[in-house]
Design a protein around this nucleic acid. Structure first.
Length: 407
RNA sequence: GGAGGGGUUCCCGAGUGGCUAAAGGGAGCAGACUGUAAAUCUGCCGGCUAUCGCCUUCGGUGGUUCGAAUCCACCCCCCUCCA
């Protein structure tokens, strides 16, 4: 089975520039391909991870991935899929984010002996000469045609700056540059990148008279079409500092029934037979599939050890095991707690953002100590409560936080 | 540069002098029901507090007024049309 078929079967593929040719190319040759990642935040998120999965599948099949960090393109900002221009970022910010991207990417691909490359388009974009660029690259773009592209069309109402309008040319130029430097012949990207990818492939065909291909993969969406990976605290980050492995695990553990099979196919390497079997489980049986999904994805991103811990914590809290070591915990001294109102220490655990929110939580009957509902907003923690060395707080049905008291 | 229309709480969006911490919807949190799911119904949803108390918020600054998100002046930003 070729990678193309693998990607197809797993539901990655959205659009391809040349279906037959690409199918054959990937089956018969080892190619170099790339995906660009603009470092607009200080961590990758699940959306990026989907791209890394595609790269990993491709690398396993013997193709060579290039992770292109968009140190140059981020200076301009991709308007695709956005209704407003995003904040302009400083060079320092972009570079710092780029470094973090690099670190996180190392774990998903094998970079040894150039089996995968990591490049930064700042290296060729930032020193470009404006007039030369316009004459060499700009001539090949028809404004009329650009304006009909989906990514610009929805911006015609809200407005589009000339800065952003140039993004497509820069990304097209990247592809050309990579083609010249490394023989890269294919660009992959999320479905929103279709126009940018086409522009690059066209540019190469025109300037180099060589074939170039593009392929987009589906965005991670829920069965009802919403973007996946959103949490109460924003995106689902790959950085354990921003999204702790336990929270990450729980996100997938709580996924909609309807999305389980899709996520297993896209975000894990489980064989498709297994994916189909798990996805077909009915009723509460499907929880098995969710556990597998949560464990596998957490393992890929945070490693086996963290995945074990997360699973173990979940088992302790929901499954009845009593090993609470890996449950989210805050450590206090007796002086921090004894005689204090529960409401005043609650924000320090991260369970609520403010005292007021904690108050409302209690008023709504959503806070528990152990299995006892807290009724009194001014409930004070007594000596006796602390004698056991720890307290289990619970917000709602499934958010737990353990207080450990260290003398 | 000219003419017109805008900038409201996380998002969308109502609000044109006191009854406005600000309608409605979405998102989010909690309760019931469940399978750590979905759908549904209910409550909460700026901060601090003893619920009716105080503080901060409606692009910015300065005014008018007993009192302003609402009126005036100037400034900044966005959109549409014209150049």
């Amino acid at each position: 089975m070729s990678v193309y078929e693998v990607l197809e079967e797993r539901g990655f593929i959205q659009q391809v520039t040349h279906d037959e040719e690409v199918r054959e190319l990937l089956a018969k040759e080892k190619i170099t391909f790339y995906i660009g990642f603009d470092p607009t935040a200080d961590s990758l998120h699940v959306g990026h991870f989907l791209g890394m999965m595609v790269m990993a599948h491709m690398q396993r099949a013997g193709h060579r991935p290039i992770c292109l960090i968009g140190g140059g393109t981020t200076m301009v900002g991709d308007p695709s899929g956005k209704t407003d221009m995003r904040r302009m970022m400083t060079r320092e910010e972009i570079d710092a984010n780029g470094e973090r991207f690099k670190k996180q990417m190392q774990r998903f691909l094998d970079f040894a002996e150039d089996r995968a490359l990591m490049l930064n388009n700042a290296d060729w974009l930032l020193d470009l000469n404006y007039v030369e660029f316009l004459r060499e690259i700009g001539v090949h773009f028809s404004v009329n045609r650009m304006l009909t592209a989906e990514c610009y069309r929805n911006r015609m109402e809200k407005g589009l700056t000339f800065l952003e309008f140039n993004y497509m040319l820069m990304q097209a130029y990247d592809f050309l540059e990579l083609n010249r430097r490394t023989g890269c012949v294919m660009q992959l990207g999320g479905a929103d990148q279709w126009s940018n990818i086409l522009a690059g492939a066209d540019l190469i065909r025109r300037k180099e008279s060589k074939p170039a291909y593009g392929l987009t993969f589906t965005l991670l969406t829920t069965s009802d079409g919403r973007k996946m990976g959103k949490t109460e605290k924003g995106a689902l980050w790959l950085d354990p500092e921003k999204t702790p492995p336990y929270d990450f695990y729980q996100y997938w553990r709580n996924i909609d029934d309807a999305d389980v099979a899709n996520c297993l196919a896209l975000l894990t390497f489980l064989p498709m037979d297994e994916v189909r079997r798990l996805g077909a489980l009915a009723g509460s049986e499907i929880n098995t599939a969710k556990k597998t999904l949560a464990y596998e994805v957490t393992k890929l991103i945070h490693g086996e050890q963290e995945a074990d811990k997360a699973r173990q914590a979940a088992e302790a809290l929901f499954g009845g095991s009593d090993d609470l070591d890996n449950v989210p915990t805050t450590v206090f001294t007796p002086a921090d707690i004894v005689g204090k109102r529960i409401i005043d220490i609650l924000p320090a655990t991260g369970l609520v953002a403010s005292v007021g929110e904690g108050r409302r939580l209690i008023a709504g009957g959503g806070l528990y100590i152990g299995d006892d509902k807290v009724d009194d907003q001014n409930c004070v923690i007594g000596e006796a409560a602390v004698s056991g060395g720890s307290l289990m707080l619970r917000k709602g049905k499934k958010t737990y936080h353990r207080l450990v008291i260290e003398k």
